[in-house]
Every structure is written in structure tokens, then in C-alpha cells.
């Protein structure tokens, strides 16, 4: 059973930095949005290697599915 992990760091002013692992593609941002209501409060999003890898895998899978049809 895969584990989803979010590490929240609350700085001295109450701002939050969140780092996720174990999520697939955009679902990490969705999970953070559910958790923190991100609309209008995010100052910076840095996508990790893991995010890009999973996005690439998903794209590859879509391409291969297209290739079959």
C-alpha cells in the first residue's frame, strides 16, 4: 500500500511551506489544496523531480494507449 506524505513547515510568521511525496502528478497539488485551501495564497510552487517523472510516465502511457488505438 503506497504512502502519501506531506511535510508542512510553519515559519515564524505563520506561512506554510509544504513538501509532498508519494503522490501521482497533479494529485499532490490537489491534496495540498484540500488541506490548505491554496487559492490566492500560494507564493511559489516548485515541482520536484518526482512530479516530473510521474508526469512523464503518465504522458508516455497516454501516448502508448493512443498508439494502440
Amino acid at each position: 500500500m503506497p504512502e502519501q506524505k506531506i511535510t508542512l513547515t510553519i515559519d515564524d510568521d505563520g506561512a506554510i511551506t509544504a513538501k509532498t511525496s508519494g503522490f501521482k502528478g497533479e494529485s499532490c497539488l490537489e491534496a495540498l489544496d484540500e488541506l490548505l485551501n491554496l487559492e490566492g495564497v500560494v507564493s511559489n510552487v516548485k515541482k520536484t523531480d518526482e512530479y516530473h517523472q510521474q508526469q512523464t510516465q503518465q504522458t508516455n502511457r497516454v501516448q502508448s494507449l493512443k498508439g494502440k488505438s
Binding site: M1, Q4, I6, L8, T9, I10, L35
Partner: peptide
């Protein structure tokens, strides 16, 4: 953050980082 995380099925572990900031590690299967 803790209340919301628990309501979404995360288990919460609280620590403090080297800068003395609160760190919440949320995990769920």
C-alpha cells in the same frame, strides 16, 4: 493544519526543525 489533516485521514507527527519552526509530517496510506 492538524485538524484538517486528521479529518482527511492523515496521521500527524509534530517536530521542530533546526530553525525552531514547527514541522508537521502528515502520512496516510
Amino acid at each position: 493544519a492538524i485538524a484538517k489533516a486528521k479529518s482527511q485521514g492523515y496521521s500527524v507527527k509534530e517536530t521542530t526543525n533546526s530553525k525552531g519552526q514547527i514541522q508537521l509530517v502528515l502520512t496516510r496510506m
